[in-house]
Design a protein around this nucleic acid. Structure first.
Length: 349
DNA sequence: GCGATCAGCT
DNA sequence: CACAGCTGATCGC
């Protein structure tokens, strides 16, 4: 049972698998969990314990790229965790039972070089026949979802941030940079900007606790501060990066009766794959008075061309979509149609 | 007044 | 609309 905790029951199975710590995947886990062992990565296990109150005895963290054997329903199952290139701690599960192999990607952003650097996955890509079942993150399973690489999206965001800071310096403006993020996810974009600008990153104490649970190297954790005065680069929830929620950030947010203006301009960065328009520049910008919002098409899900490369590489016998399951058949048809068109083109060419 | 659950919103 | 939540209303205690 992968990411299916709302269906959990002690009679069903004792082995549960959690791909990553996002609420739509861990739903069903709470502090009273007692249905069996939850296997996951170490960062995910830390968060399930600290944020959801599950006892460590129920949590079984596993390392990456190292096959382990778990007894399930009287049969030995070999399982390998592979980095999913999604949020911190996110993994894919490769299950092998006898001759049968199943890959559940959880949520993932396919990256050919990164993923084939995992020995078990590279071995799988070289075998023939390869994979029986592929449980696929079909979030962007449509031709219209072509996204820039994460590298290019981050590069664009860094350039915009540098330009904003230089402009503010010339104008002697007090500038606040805001970066939207989920509970976990979207860290690379604000860490890259902070590194380039030589700034610390302000996070509130709750977010600091979460990020401190991710087993980061200490130099990366040391880029963070929980004191607002120590940085003008702040991380806030994604829902605050809009014209309605940003005005309060111009002012002192304390409970003081008379708010004191602290900044002349607030510039928010909104990292989301949904904002992307084909053609034109990578980042789109909206301005109103002292507020600016830069939408950055930075995604932690695979774009459509990446999904095609994934299935061409792994050649699964069967694909099972895990996102917007109501249109699952159309999603598979679309993938297969593109694969077939490409194969025909190659043959004719 | 508290937590759990759910509709509504972004 | 999707994702990954957050806010506010309602319910049970």
């Amino acid at each position: 049972m992968v990411d299916g905790f709302t269906y959990a029951s002690p009679t069903l199975t004792k082995n549960y698998w959690l791909t990553h710590f996002h609420s739509d995947h861990y739903g069903g886990i709470d502090k009273n969990w007692n249905c069996g062992t939850i296997y996951c990565s170490l960062p995910t296990a830390n968060l399930v314990h600290e944020r959801l109150g599950v006892e460590r005895t129920f949590l079984h963290p596993l390392g990456l790229n190292t096959p382990v054997v778990v007894e399930s329903m009287g049969k030995p199952v070999t399982v390998t965790l592979i980095d999913a290139n999604h949020c911190p701690g996110a993994v894919m599960f490769l299950f092998q039972v006898g001759k049968r192999s199943v890959l559940h990607v959880g949520d993932f952003r396919w990256h050919r070089e990164k993923m084939l650097s995992s020995p078990p996955l590279r071995a799988l890509s070289l075998k023939d026949p390869q994979l029986d079942d592929l449980y696929l993150d079909t979030t962007y399973c449509n031709e219209k979802y072509t996204l820039p690489t994460q590298y290019d999206a981050i590069k664009a965001a860094v350039e915009y941030a540098v330009r904003e800071v230089e402009h503010a310096k010339q104008q002697r403006e007090r500038l606040l940079l805001l970066f939207g993020a989920y509970t976990i996810g979207k860290e690379r974009i604000y860490l890259s900007v902070a590194e380039r600008l030589g700034m610390k990153v302000y996070v509130d104490s709750q977010r600091y606790k979460v990020l401190a649970a991710l087993e980061w190297p200490k130099e990366r954790l040391a880029m963070l501060t929980t004191k607002k005065e120590e940085s003008t680069l702040w991380v806030v929830q994604l829902g605050h990066i809009n014209m309605k929620a940003m005005p309060p950030y111009l002012y002192n947010l304390s409970k003081a009766k008379n708010p004191v203006q602290k900044f002349d301009r607030v510039v928010g960065f909104r990292p989301t794959g949904w904002s992307h328009k084909a053609g034109g520049s990578i980042i789109s910008t909206a301005k109103r008075g002292q507020l600016t919002v830069h939408s950055v098409p930075y995604s932690e899900h695979s774009a459509f061309p990446e999904l095609l490369d994934c299935i061409r590489t792994l050649k699964p016998k069967r694909i099972i979509p895990t996102v917007s399951v109501s249109k699952s058949q159309q999603q598979i048809d679309l993938l297969l149609r593109h694969i077939n068109v490409r194969q025909r083109t190659l043959l004719e060419g």
